[in-house]
Each structure stands twice: as C-alpha cells, then as structure tokens.
Amino acid sequence: MAAQKINEAHEHIAKAEKCLKTSLTKWKPDYDSAASEYAKAAVCFKNAKQYEQAKDAYLKEAEYHTENKTLFHAANTLVTLLFVLRQEQKKMPEAIQYIEKACMMYMENGTPDTAAMALDRAGKLIEPINLEKAVDLYQKAAGVFENEDRLRQAVELLGKASRLLVRLKRLDEAAVALQKEKNMYKEIENFPMCFKKTTAQVLIHLHRGDYVAADKCVRESYSLPGYSGSEDCVAMETLLQGYDEQDEDQVYRVCNSPLLKYMDNDVSTADPGSPGVQKNRTKTRNSAFRVYISSS
C-alpha cells in the first residue's frame, strides 16, 4: 500500500511539472493546476508515512499558490504542515515558523481572524514542548484580535499567556498581562471576571513580595460595580490583613476558602513570603497560595 501511494505521489509531481512548462502556445505556467497536483502528491506521501517528502510537496504547493497570488490558499497549506511535522516532536519549531509565515499571509490577504486562530492552534500544540513559545504565540494572537476590536477573543488568549507566565515564574510579566486582561474585561463590562483577575493580581503580587501593589489592586477595584463587599473583595481584604499582621491562621483560612481552594485548576502554588506566614509552612500544602489565572 505504501509503495502504491508513493508511486501515485510521483505521478502527481510529474503532472505538476508538466503544468509548469511553457511553449509557443502556452506562455504562462499553470500555477493553479501545479499547486493542485502537489497537494495530491503531499496527501499520498502522508498516507505512506513519508513525512519529509510530504513536507516538500506541501511547500511546493504553497509556493505555487503564492505565485498564483492566492495567498489564503498558500497560508492554509502552510498551516497543514503543522499536522505533518508534529509527527516528530523535534520538527515542531520548524512547523511553528511556517505557522508564523502563514499568519503574515492571512494578514496580507485581509483575513486577520484566521491568522489569530492559526496562532492559537499553534500555541496549543507547542505548549507541551515549549512554554515560552506558546506564550509568544498566544500574545501575538491576542494582539491580532485586539487590533480588530475583538476584545472577548483577545482577552481569552491573554489569559492563556498569563497562566503560562505564572507557570514559568515570570511573575513581573504575569502581573502586567493580568492588568491588561482586567482592563479589557472592564471595557467589555464583564465585571465578575474583573473580580477574578483582581484576586489573581493580589496573589501574584504577594508572591512577588509586593504587598503595596497587592493592596493597590484591591483599592483600585473598589470602583468596579459590585466589587466592594463582594465575596472576592472580602476574601482579599482578609488575606491582606492577615498578611500584613503576619497572622498565619487568617491567611490559612482564606487560602482554604472555597473561593480559592476550588477554582478551576491551572495552578501554581506560591507561599506568601512573609516570615510570620511562612511559619510551619511544611505542615500542609494548604498553607500555600493557590494561584489561578482563569482562561474563561
């Protein structure tokens, strides 16, 4: 079966090369037909598990779509390469480069939404391998949506990036990303999510050892409709008070309250950093903060 598919692939390549030839009666290469034949060849190679040859065929298809000035089809072809190259983990960085090139083509073609979705898809696939690159891709995708005034989509992707920044312990950047998320949620008037982001900000700032910044986040959030007196507000006020007074029991109670303990999990644990709060911290994992950056 594999040999048959490889033979079929070579037959399609031969047809493609014929489409590219010119003559006295055919002045221009038929790029559209050549691209179509290379697409068929690529599928045959892929079915035969000849992934390197499939990659070469897809690249030829993309090249001839570009020559034919059909950038959307060229970009789609480069995105398809992602699903070929991911067969080998070491090929993923190369695949991501093609995605980024496809993104530029989508933008030039006037289809930025498709560009952002391709970056998001690439981010999901590279995330288990390279968190730093996933952050970059999610942030780029968010930027594309933001430029198109699609803030709901942009803020969702920013949330993905924020979670990974926490996991990478890049907390200064996470704090900046969270503030941007919060501003977007405020702009689209999703105030409950603003509350959640405030909670996340407080936890991040305390983990950074910046009590002043944590306190400022809560105070600034008093202007949000419904925040003052809410469960989120009371919990953070209590947490900050316990932290300031080095009251380990009070911090423990807040960190084990349903508001924090049962949040949906993409979790990083972080101890408070205050000597009084750190006392007996090995007694239980629940004496640590559970830092969650929601993507919803």
Rank of each mutant, 00 (worst) to 15 (best):
A2G: 15
A2S: 13
Q4P: 00
E8H: 07
I13T: 02
A14W: 02
C19V: 08
C19T: 03
L24I: 11
W27I: 14
K28P: 01
Y31C: 05
Y31L: 09
D32C: 08
K40Y: 12
A42Q: 08
V43L: 13
V43C: 06
C44A: 14
K46L: 02
K46H: 10
N47M: 10
Q50E: 12
E52T: 14
K60Q: 14
Y64V: 03
T66R: 11
E67T: 07
N68V: 05
T70H: 11
V79P: 00
L82D: 01
R86K: 14
Q89I: 11
Q89C: 06
M92R: 04
E94Y: 03
A95L: 03
I96M: 08
K101G: 04
M105A: 03
Y106I: 14
N109R: 06
G110R: 09
D113R: 13
T114H: 07
A116I: 10
A118D: 01
A118N: 11
D120H: 14
R121I: 08
G123S: 06
G123C: 04
G123M: 07
K124A: 15
L125G: 02
E127V: 09
P128E: 02
N130I: 05
E132N: 14
D136T: 13
Q139A: 09
A141H: 01
V144D: 01
F145Y: 14
E146S: 15
E148R: 11
E148K: 04
Q153A: 10
V155S: 00
E156S: 08
L158D: 05
G159M: 05
K160S: 15
L168E: 10
D172V: 10
A174Q: 10
A175F: 00
M184R: 07
E187N: 06
I188D: 03
E189C: 01
F191Q: 06
T199V: 15
Q201L: 15
L203R: 10
I204L: 15
I204W: 02
H205F: 12
L206Q: 06
Y211L: 06
A214D: 00
C217K: 04
E220W: 02
Y227P: 04
Y227V: 04
Y227Q: 07
G229N: 06
V234P: 01
E237W: 00
E237H: 04
E237D: 06
Q246P: 02
D249S: 15
V251W: 07
V251Y: 02
N256E: 10
L259N: 01
L260V: 14
V267G: 01
S268T: 13
D271I: 15
P272K: 00
G273R: 00
S274P: 01
P275H: 07
P275I: 02
V277N: 03
K279A: 13
N280D: 11
R281E: 10
R281H: 10
K283S: 11
T284F: 09
T284V: 02
S287P: 00
S287W: 14
S296T: 13
